[in-house]
Design a protein around this nucleic acid. Structure first.
Lengths: 331, 331
DNA sequence: GTGAAAGCGCTAACAC
DNA sequence: GTGTTAGCGCTTTCAC
């Protein structure tokens, strides 16, 4: 039934070594012998068995990606970008979804690092570095994506979080906003922390009210923005910053439902998913912060393959910059 | 460096067989022996090597999913749903993206079926059954998802395409539409074909104009709807049906840009991505067809695991039903 | 320019 | 109730 390398060798009248070397171009084989081997392969319909191969060589040609929320456009686009890079380099991508659950992340990290993949990409939902660190076998190729830890012991590819939020606040203040509220993502995430601290710093610098009631946190998943929004409106905010694309569209939706007009009744700044038409529809009524998702994915793919090749490479950190698209700017 | 099962056996003072059986609960082991084994495992930090295991057993505990477009919300949600089901059953998910390119699909099918995964889920972009069929090794567990072939030799999980479109046309006709245009997906796909034939049949049944110029095809990916829309508007359509979520949001966007108002200037019916706020925003101005993506994913996961367990199970076909949400219906 | 053969880490048939 | 051991399909060292 299953045709193996020895079947090929036998039919071609050569050794298994020769077949292997022919297939892998790993030592000189004469043209005639090659010919015989290929003929036999063709005749038998032989395909080398991937799992025997990876067992033998220790290389799985596979990378794991632990994602907090696949159905979120931001991560879906990132997955696409990572897959693109990896498949172009002969690697496969295993996806694990955590839905922002640290337990699921833990389980998946254990499974993936136990000989399933050559390296992992992780957009971690964990708060504590120690918990994360304990799950990674020593020297296992690992790259953090989008979210990092204070302890910088792993390579990471992130997006600047501080700058765009600081700028948002300043711009809102400059336009006369009196009460700027913010809707953040999960409070434990590095990305959220950075954004909130940018907000705090900017609010202080601009002489705007520094009130905890103006800071609300969603869960970065479906249906978490409405409550935050209600609370901010109760605080009489005249400007709101939203830290995530999914929550942005929910915010726009709820505002519209309540008859509160963008740009006129309230000023909005938000991270948006760049390739969604949603943002295009409103880009003339709100400031948009567009993260370089595709570049993020490409860089992540690049880094993990580098680390797989050389697991002892020094820790590498890359911070990409988001595009800031203000609306209604006079030239 | 790497700790193996024999290290554990040696330290525990038992045979490798006993260690294996202890780990896998595969034959009786006395409580004391178990204890010794677990102790040794703990002490050495042993983790069984997944690739040795799958090489030995032939089971990879992994399913491949060939997807036409990961960043498309429809497929992203489906991936999430599939992953959910699989991981709950101890399986991993390998994702391959084709971007509707048959060549990429071919390459990925070859790679995945060569001992990498136990079964494949495919939302194929191929037109010809023969080309697809030739890529699947005899008896390899395979389930078609969302798209199928005329030759029903593989199990499939699809969504009813005919009914909602037929209904759309009738409803539009009933409301007085004179010229109903349609924007389909890639013409070669079964889903598109079924939808277009439903349109043709309904248009004939309702006495609406049967003109080829009223049928346009996009590519189901970013930025393909505008051209179709322009052509339909030139044809003086007073109603338009859009066969895919991504193209729907583009259509809404372009209509808005042109100052053409939904429900007032033009009647729209569209497949929408159910959990996107986009559709909620317009659900009172257009008919929405919502596909049961999550159920689709779950059923696909279920089927592929069934086939992996029993590759000789009879071909199974499931057709799920979309929800139809008309707007402005008087009770 | 090619072959023989060891062995990767594990499971499972067979033996006691 | 547990141990011995063959062998999964491949790569690669060593030998000629």
């Amino acid at each position: 039934m299953k045709v193996t390398i020895s079947d090929v060798a036998r039919l071609a009248g050569v050794s298994t070594a020769t077949v292997s070397h022919t297939i892998n171009n790993t030592r000189y084989v004469s043209a005639e012998t090659k010919e015989k081997v290929y003929q036999a392969i063709e005749e038998l319909g032989y395909t080398p068995d991937a799992s025997a191969r990876s067992f033998r060589t220790g290389r799985k040609q596979t990378v794991g990606f632990i994602v907090p929320d696949i159905s979120n456009k931001f991560f879906a686009t990132m997955i696409e970008s990572v897959e693109n890079y990896l498949s172009a380099h002969g690697y496969h991508l295993i996806i694990a979804n955590t839905k922002e659950d640290a337990g699921r992340e833990e389980k998946n990290l254990r499974l993936l690092t136990a000989g399933l993949v050559d390296g992992v990409l992780v957009a971690s939902t964990m708060e504590e570095f120690e918990r994360f660190d304990a799950l990674i076998p020593a020297g296992f190729p690992t790259v953090l994506v989008d979210r990092t830890f204070e302890t910088k012991r792993y390579s990471s590819i992130c997006v600047s979080n501080f700058q765009p939020i600081y700028r948002s606040v300043c711009r809102l203040a400059g336009k006369g906003a009196k009460r700027v509220g913010i809707i953040g993502g999960l409070p434990r995430l590095s990305s959220t922390k950075e954004r909130i601290s940018a907000y705090k710093e900017a609010v202080a610098d601009c002489g705007l009210p520094q009130e905890d009631a103006l800071i609300r946190y969603g869960n970065s998943m479906e249906n978490s923005a409405q409550e935050c929004l209600d609370e901010l409106l109760e605080q009489n905010c005249d400007a709101i910053i939203v830290c995530q694309g999914l929550m942005a569209s929910e915010t726009i939706f709820y505002l519209q439902e309540k008859g509160i007009r963008l740009a006129q009744d309230i000023d909005l700044v938000s991270f948006v998913d760049y390739d969604s038409n949603f943002y295009q529809l409103y880009s003339d009524q709100m400031d948009c912060i567009i993260q370089p998702v595709e570049e993020l994915g490409r860089a992540a793919g690049e880094q993990i393959l580098k680390r797989i090749e050389d697991p002892d490479a020094p820790v590498f950190e890359k911070v990409l910059t988001s595009a800031y698209k203000p609306y209604g700017l006079k030239r």
